[in-house]
Amino acid sequence: MEWVTGNLDLIGSLTLDHLRQSVIAIAAGFALSLPLGWVAWRYRLLRGWVITVTGLLYTIPSLALLMILPVVAGYPATSETNLVIALTIYAVAIMVRAVTDGLDAVDPAVRRSATAVGYGDARRFWAVDLPLAGPVILAGLRVTAVSTISLATVGILVGVTNLGYLFTNGLQRRIIPEVLAGIVAVALVALLIDLLLMLAGRALMPWARAEAPRRSSTAAEAAA
């Protein structure tokens, strides 16, 4: 505890670094996954490929990715860009699947109905398909966010500073409170982002909650 109170400035600035790196990667991963997920959903033939390839990305060990990417792309391994790009790749690996599943979950009858009353294809995507895929996409985004924030700590192993620094430094200098502070700080950042995403979901998709009670009651009826 003493170590923590004496190093609040350090923890604070590391937290900000951590947040910046994670949030950029989450946002970029989300933005890239929308078109990729849509393509996979829209074009049946590409679907298997997109899902498999993006899924395989997730199996690349993070440390290996952090060391290979700089060689391939030609930026220093220690740069923040290196970590952010690696995290973005993992985010895409999870999110593409979520976007595809979300679009799949939209009731085809609602989609047809939207077309029947006069939505053009593009407008229908933004006004109908995407919002209705929202709950599934949000669930994927929340998993992505938490996993990205936790995964970001690996950056310290190639020299990108963030909350991971508290782990390596604490272990080297055998300051257990420092390691614990790192764990708690990462967990708090993850919880905070998760909470914000949940609240954003409620604000943007008020209908999803209005719908929930009926769904559970029909599920109960079906089970009975």
């Binding site: 009731d107 009858a109 609602v110 047809r112 109905s113 939207a114 029947a116 109908v128 919002p131 209705l132 929202g134 998709m205 209908w207 999803a208 719908e211």
Partner: peptide
């Protein structure tokens, strides 16, 4: 249409 076809959102 049948089942209203309303936009649930």
């Amino acid at each position: 249409m049948q089942n209203s076809g309303l936009m649930p959102h």
